[in-house]
Each structure stands twice: as structure tokens, then as C-alpha cells.
Design a protein around this nucleic acid. Structure first.
Lengths: 210, 210
DNA sequence: ACCTGAACACCGTTCAAGT
DNA sequence: ACCTGAACACCGTTCAAGT
């Protein structure tokens, strides 16, 4: 039941760790070229390891994607925790959503992981849960301040964000679309009854930035 | 250059038309079961035709999907043209977006076609273009009435709609999520400066319904 | 002009043998 | 405990032969 080491995962043998790193590097290389297939055969050849080794480390495409995205997910969690601590929840929310959209645009595997409801790797599951907790806390504060509609939870927001991301990514000029869709999403999230008051507050907030 | 017949596509030989229909039926049958693969081998076997015949009618998955979705696309075009003729553009827009989301939820291939920027079949291209024209007209009227933000075009709306659809479909209880995300999207689309006036008008509009 | 299905090529996955 | 790569199974696609 109890773990041997301090970390969640059992320590890998040195050659295993090296092979795993090589596979992830090879995957990033192939992603940098246009290959989104991430076939384990091609990956193994590219990494200089046997096919079986690739399958040992990453039983399916999903665990490979999660392995590739953990770093980005950690960064996003940092951003979420920082946003959750922001004085003005509306400012924190806008910063977090913008950061998330930028991160997804820069890192397609992160977008893929965020679009899955239930990850398979233990580490990813943990990070997702923490992310959800931070976000829910932020949303709670925004709701209490009357800044946000009450019928949208953290998981709703995750899905809406992924939706906005793929919408922005679908056309030409994704950066411009991203900013417009973010504006639409933020405006849509505001509490309906808050009306002019909330939007006036939002405008003031916007003035303090840039 | 000029076409032989009255319709856009050349008339099919009777057996060819029959085989095409059988393939589409088989595809719908397999979709009704959980198979989203739509492999042409399985389809041909299921339809009782040779594999080559399947490939002759549908060179790739995309043209098959478009073939499956044309009916739904026509219905959606009808809805868009009706919405474009609505007295109140805000009411027309809400009706159209709700209808589109329902249609996509009921017909996954329609959602797939709407998510592609450039269809491959001539008929689908034509329908998409008409849909875009109707929608743009509706948006123009809404913008002129000061009901809508000016930086969102018909293609933006198509992409946002697809995004909202996949967001709603991702979780449990898609119907409830659909209605909530539609509300978020509609609120987000309203002109920022319109403020309380626009939302009061929207509430009145909501009162006249149901 | 259209249909058929055997044949080919490719790719994902496994597993016995090895260190 | 981990690695290797040949071998298998499967599936998408083509194309020569037929009507």
C-alpha cells in the first residue's frame, strides 16, 4: 500500500529513465515537424530503442501525450494558484484564462490533455485535480462578489476553454481570434443580473492593465 | 464547362445510385452502433458491395461524412434562412444557435462537417456558402441594431458554435450543458457598450417565449 | 461506366529470447 | 527489471479482370 520512495512513482532504473527521456524527446521532435500521429514504431526508431521498450513506457497514445504534457500542466497549475490568490477575482480569472489559452496554443499536447475528462497517469490525475481545486476556489470568490454567473463550475470552464481554444485554432490568425474569443467568453461568464455595474467594473479593471 | 443536366452533379447510373444509398445506409447503421471509425472495408461488407465500389463513391472519409451530413446541412440552412427573416435579429440568432446545437448533438456527422473550414464535395461547399451568407446577413442586422459586438463574423460564430458543442458533449448531461453554454455564448456575443439596455431587451424577449 | 475482390503495403501490438 | 526486434494481426488502398 505505502510507497517505497518519497515521490508517487517508483524510481526507474537508470537505463529505463534514459530511454523514457529519449522517447519523449523523439516525440517532441516529431511533433515539431508536423507529425501528430506519434506512432510508437516511428518513435522507437527515432529514439534508437526497441519497439517493446516504447510500449513498456507508454502503453497507449494517451499515456504518451500525458507524459509530454506534464511540464505544461505544472506551469498551468502554478498560474492557477497565483490567479486564485489575486486580490480581484475578475482580474485573476482573466489572467488565468488568457494564460491557459496561450499555453494550449503553444503546446498542442497540453490542449489534448485538458480536453480529456479523465487522464490515465497518476501524476496527471493529481495535477488535474489540483488545477480543478484552484479554479473552483477562484470561481467561488468571483461568484460571491457577484461577478459571475452561478451555473458554471470549474469543469464547465475547462470544457469551454478547450472549446474556445479549438475555435481559435481552426482559422487563420489564431492569435487575434484567441483574444476575441476570450473576450466573448469572459463577457458570457459575467453574472447576467450584474449588468452595467459589472461591466463598468470590468472596464475599469481593463484600464489598469497596459 | 456547362453541365449536362439541371443539377450540379452528373446523374448516376441506377446501380451506382443504389450502391451509394446502400453505403450511406450502412454507414448510418454503424454510426448508430458506436462505430465512429467508418472504415470503408467494414462498410462495403455491411452494404454488400465490393470494397472498390466504396472507394469509388467515397474516396476518403471526409467525402463520406459530407455525404452523410448533407440532409442535416440542408435543414440547418432552412433554419438559418428562417432566422435571417425574423423580425428581431436577437430572437432569430438565439433560435438559430439553439437549433444548430440541437442538430449537432443529434447528428455527429453534421457537427464534424461544420467543424471543417473547407469541405471537399461540391454540394457541401455550396450549402456551407449559403449558410454563411444567411448568417452574415443576420449578424449584420444584429450589429446595426447595436445588439452585437462588431468583431465577430459568421465564420467566428461557426467556430465558436462548434466549440460550445464539443464542450457540451464532453461531459455528462450534455443537454443541460448545452443550454448553459448557449446562454454564455449569447451573453458573450452582446455588444459590450449596449450594457443594461441590451440585457433588459433580452429579458423581455425571453419573457415572450414560453 | 461501373463493379468485384484478391493482393499489396503499412502500421500497431505482442512476446519469446536475451542482458 | 528491463531491453530487443522478429513476427503476427489488422486495416486502408489499389488495380487488373470482369460485366
Amino acid at each position: 500500500m505505502a510507497d517505497s520512495g518519497g515521490t508517487g512513482a517508483a524510481a526507474l532504473r537508470s537505463d529505463a529513465a534514459r530511454n523514457r527521456a529519449r522517447l519523449l524527446d523523439a516525440a517532441r521532435q516529431r511533433l515539431a515537424g508536423g507529425d501528430t500521429t506519434l506512432g510508437l514504431n516511428a518513435l522507437a526508431r527515432c529514439a534508437g530503442v526497441g519497439v517493446g521498450t516504447a510500449y513498456r513506457h507508454f502503453p497507449d497514445r494517451q499515456s504518451l501525450v500525458e507524459g509530454l504534457a506534464t511540464e505544461g500542466l505544472k506551469d498551468l497549475l502554478d498560474a492557477a494558484q497565483q490567479a486564485a490568490g489575486d486580490l480581484d477575482p475578475a482580474v485573476g480569472l482573466e489572467r488565468l484564462l488568457r494564460a491557459a489559452l496561450s499555453a494550449m496554443a503553444a503546446d498542442s499536447v497540453l490542449a489534448e490533455v485538458l480536453s480529456t475528462a479523465t487522464p490515465v497517469c497518476a501524476e496527471t490525475i493529481g495535477l488535474s485535480r489540483e488545477l480543478g481545486v484552484s479554479l473552483e476556489g477562484l470561481l467561488d470568490r468571483a461568484r460571491c462578489a457577484g461577478l459571475m454567473r452561478p451555473d458554471v463550475g470549474a469543469d464547465d470552464l475547462r470544457r469551454l476553454l478547450v472549446g474556445a481554444h479549438s475555435a481559435a485554432q481552426a482559422g487563420s490568425d489564431p492569435e487575434a481570434a484567441r483574444e476575441r474569443y476570450l473576450a466573448v467568453l469572459l463577457a458570457g461568464l459575467r453574472h447576467p443580473a450584474a449588468g452595467a455595474l459589472a461591466s463598468r467594473a470590468a472596464l475599469q479593471v481593463a484600464d489598469t492593465r497596459s
